[in-house]
Computed example of a mutant assay.
Amino acid sequence: MGGRGSASGISDKGRKYGTEYRTLFQSNNIKFIKYDISKSATSPYETRSNHRIYVTINNKNEPKYITMYRNNGKRLAQIDISGPAHTQAGRKFETPHIHVGYEHQGSYVRNLNFWEKRLLSRTKNIWYNKRKDK
């Protein structure tokens, strides 16, 4: 757990917990964040907040991932909003799709269900309506 600094407060690269991402906007339990270390968008592995939902924004200022967490801060699932399609067990999953599980690679991939489609629609509406206000 210490690779990103979740256990000790400092990562193995010397970064303090909470300095990899910056919050752009928050609406209830949904936080819109941007990865500060490189230009490619990366979602957080863990959080200190219970039942948090993070929406990772890419460099084009568009939502890239929606990541959901359990009450222990561990990743529950991640919705890939944009990016390449995935193939698993001979099936091709177009984007958007969901990775269920802690690890992104090797996790169970499937299409979105009704509730996940609603979450996707809701987060996009929040983000794009918020941007209109600026």
Rank of each mutant, 00 (worst) to 15 (best):
K34F: 08
A7K: 08
R110W: 00
K31T: 12
R52Q: 07
I98Q: 02
G14L: 09
K13R: 14
N50H: 01
Y108L: 01
P84E: 13
I57R: 01
N29W: 10
K132Y: 15
T123V: 15
N59E: 14
T42P: 02
D36K: 14
Y21I: 03
Y128F: 15
W127C: 13
W115C: 02
I33E: 05
H99K: 02
I66V: 11
F32N: 02
R131S: 14
G3E: 08
K34G: 04
K92I: 08
K117E: 13
T23I: 08
N72W: 01
K130F: 15
S40H: 15
D80L: 11
G73S: 00
F32G: 03
H97L: 04
R118S: 09
L24Q: 06
T123S: 15
I33F: 10
K60L: 05
S49W: 02
L24M: 13
P96N: 09
N113G: 10
E94R: 11
R131F: 13
Y102K: 04
Y45W: 15
V55M: 04
D12G: 12
Y128G: 12
R91Q: 10
I53V: 14
N129S: 15
A77R: 09
E103I: 04
L119P: 10
W127S: 14
R52T: 01
F114T: 11
S82P: 06
S82K: 12
T42R: 15
K117A: 04
Y102Q: 11
S27P: 00
I66A: 04
A89Q: 02
E116P: 09
N59D: 09
V100Y: 00
Y21G: 02
K16N: 04
Y65Q: 11
K117C: 11
P84Q: 14
R131Y: 14
I98L: 03
N58G: 09
G9K: 04
T95D: 07
S40E: 15
S43N: 11
Y65M: 05
L119E: 10
Y54H: 09
A41H: 14
I126Y: 12
R4E: 10
G90E: 05
I98F: 05
K31L: 11
E46P: 05
D80W: 03
R70Q: 00
I57G: 03
T95W: 10
K13H: 13
V100A: 00
T47Y: 07
V100T: 06
Y65H: 10
N61P: 06
